[in-house]
């Protein structure tokens, strides 16, 4: 896959552009500081640089300068307001930079494909059905989290959270199709977390699977009272847990 370095201001949110490019290109995000861009170019060796110049001011001319110094033939695509382009117009004269006037998924992909001599229609017309479903795993134990990620990541897009707070934050950024929740956690436990999730009307229908380390009847009943979509005793086994998740998704489709 071709490597694209995406330069912009990502301090607050990840780029939307990245999400629709990453399925067809190898992408790497990068903060719009000349120093960082310089080091990144050296290490990542991209085939193209894509820049969101809306966040640029005249000081960011060094970013252009850096790229030109690094390789004057490296294609650079920019998108953002016309005014910003006029600010850096001299870099467009060399033919290195091209500007995308109306950036959206289609125009950006088309311009990139033009640079790489690829067929843009194929990429644009693929409906992203193949996208993996998103699963959030919440557990206070990092080793178990990584373990879960290793088991699930082939089939699902896995996001990890070490606490209820992180879980809620991730929930807001990227709505999951399923949540796997540890029952025993410090500060806010699994039960409380579930209540927090169910309290939001947007999230109340997301299926939740519980993981618990304790297998006695009392506990199991307490967990089952919460009506989770599934329930497992630790340590979980890969085949079983994937089966359970698949069943839940199947049922959803049938409904």
């Amino acid at each position: 896959m071709r490597k694209i370095l995406i330069v912009g201001d990502f301090t607050n949110e990840a780029s939307e552009v990245n999400s629709y490019l990453s399925s067809n290109f190898h992408t790497q995000l990068c903060t719009n500081s000349a120093k960082i861009v310089k080091s990144m170019l050296k290490l990542y060796i991209p085939d193209m640089v894509l820049m969101d110049i809306d966040s640029f001011d005249h000081l960011h001319a060094d970013v252009f300068e850096t790229i030109q110094e690094y390789d004057p033939h490296l294609p650079v695509l920019t998108y953002g307001r016309e005014k910003k382009k006029q600010l850096f117009i001299s870099y467009y004269y060399t033919g290195q930079c091209k500007h995308i006037a109306q950036p959206n998924r289609e125009t950006i992909i088309r311009e990139i494909c033009k640079e790489f001599n690829m067929n843009a229609d194929v990429i644009i017309n693929t409906v992203e059905e193949t996208e993996k479903r998103h699963v959030i795993v919440v557990d206070d134990n990092p080793v178990l989290l990584r373990n879960m990620r290793n088991m699930l990541q082939d089939k699902y897009r896995v996001t990890l959270a070490t606490s209820a707070a992180q879980c809620m934050k991730t929930l807001g950024q990227d709505k999951p199709d399923l949540i796997i929740l540890d029952y025993e956690m410090p500060v806010v436990d699994g039960k409380q977390t579930l209540e927090m999730i169910r309290a939001e009307s947007d999230y109340k229908d997301i299926p939740v699977i519980f993981l618990t380390g304790i297998a006695d009847k009392e506990h199991v009943d307490a967990v089952l009272d919460l009506k989770p979509a599934g329930y497992f005793v630790k340590p979980p086994m890969q085949t079983k847990i994937i089966n359970a998740i698949e069943n839940i998704f199947l049922k959803q489709v049938e409904q």
Partner: peptide, 8 residues
């Protein structure tokens, strides 16, 4: 520079 890029 390499550390920089890796951190980024």
């Amino acid at each position: 520079d390499e550390l920089f890029a890796l951190l980024e």
